[in-house]
Simulated assay, not measured.
Amino acid sequence: MAFDTLPVVEYPDPILRQVCEECDIKDKSLKKLAKQMAKTMYKNNGCGIAAPQVGVLKRIIVIDCDQEDGRQDPITLINPKILELKGELVTEEEGCLSCPGISVPECRREYAVVKFTDFDGEDYIIEGDGLLGRCLQHEIDHLNGKTLFESAAPAARLKALRDYEIARAAGAKPGETSID
């Protein structure tokens, strides 16, 4: 069965500022949604996507931070919850499928510990640093109604909003982190 991609919701759509509701693990539509989210993420060269980015206010994210060899092995996290953030605060540029054409300096902890549920109702813990740790924090922010703009420091937020308007006017598409 082939799954279609879904349109990516772009800022300033108000759905991106809403807090998502918990998923009912018995909801059979979650598997289809996760497959569509993964296909959408890969099509747009992302390493993570949250349900509100495809217009669904459910607490589900799909990530795949290890695509160097061309292999696609997405992980679906249902009702993810950050248990612990540790390590130094590190500022790095982040892009977002919902904010095409820009990247924004984001200050995040180096290491994230996240509890989630799988499709069988089993609870797991995923831990990660580097790109995985950053991606987990970024996508869970989406579930809590937070975009790159709300996460950024005030000066970076103003610059990012200006840059984003320019990128939108230039026709930036999801997956693009610059308009150069």
Score class of each variant (00 low, 15 high):
Ile75Asp: 10
Asp141Thr: 10
Arg71Trp: 06
Leu83His: 03
Lys35Thr: 15
Ala153Glu: 15
Val56Asn: 09
Val9Phe: 07
Ala160Val: 00
Glu22Cys: 03
Arg162Val: 11
Lys146Asn: 10
Thr177Met: 00
Glu165Asp: 10
Ala38His: 01
Ile78Asn: 00
Asp129Cys: 01
Phe116Lys: 11
Met41Arg: 12
Gly48Phe: 10
Val104Asp: 05
Gln36Pro: 00
Leu132Asn: 06
Leu6Tyr: 13
Phe149Asn: 02
Leu148Cys: 09
Gln137Pro: 03
Asp123Glu: 15
Gly128Gln: 01
Ala153Tyr: 12
Lys31Gln: 12
Lys43Asp: 14
Leu148Pro: 06
Val114His: 07
Asp120Val: 00
Ile49Tyr: 03
Gly133Pro: 00
Ile63Ser: 02
Leu77Phe: 07
Ala172Cys: 09
Leu83Val: 01
Leu57Trp: 08
Asp24Asn: 13
Glu106Asp: 04
Tyr42Asn: 05
Thr117Pro: 01
Leu85Phe: 07
Glu127Asn: 03
Arg157Tyr: 02
Thr147Phe: 02
Val54Ser: 02
Lys146His: 09
Glu94Asp: 06
Gly101Ile: 09
Leu131Ser: 12
Val56Arg: 11
Arg109Glu: 08
Ile15Phe: 01
Cys107Ile: 04
Leu132Lys: 07
Gly121Phe: 10
Val104Lys: 04
Met37Arg: 04
Asp180Leu: 11
His142Gln: 13
Ala34Phe: 11
Ala152Cys: 08
Lys28Pro: 08
Pro7Thr: 12
Lys39Ala: 10
Ile63Met: 12
Asp69Phe: 05
Thr117Met: 13
Asp4Ile: 09
Lys173Thr: 14
Gly70Tyr: 02
Pro80Tyr: 13
Asn45Leu: 15
Phe3Val: 13
Gly145His: 02
Glu122Thr: 13
Asp27Gln: 00
Phe116Gly: 10
Glu110Val: 08
Glu150Lys: 02
Glu10Leu: 10
Glu84Pro: 00
Arg109Gln: 07
Ile63Phe: 09
Met1Thr: 15
Ile60Thr: 06
Gly171His: 07
Tyr42Lys: 08
Gly55Cys: 07
Asp73Ser: 14
Thr76Glu: 01
Thr177Pro: 00
Gln137Ile: 13
Leu97Thr: 09
Arg17Tyr: 08
Val90His: 05
Leu143His: 09
Glu10Val: 15
Val56Ser: 02
Phe149Cys: 10
Lys32Cys: 00
Lys146Arg: 11
Leu89His: 13
Tyr11His: 15
Cys47Ile: 15
Pro74Val: 12
Glu84Lys: 14
Lys32His: 09
Gly46Met: 08
Ala172Leu: 01
Gly55Ile: 13
Tyr42Phe: 15
His142Cys: 11
Asp73Thr: 14
Glu94Thr: 05
Tyr124Leu: 02
Pro80Leu: 11
Gly121His: 09
Glu21Thr: 14
Ala51Leu: 10
Glu150Thr: 02
Gln18Thr: 12
Ile49Asp: 03
Leu161Tyr: 01
Ile140Lys: 05
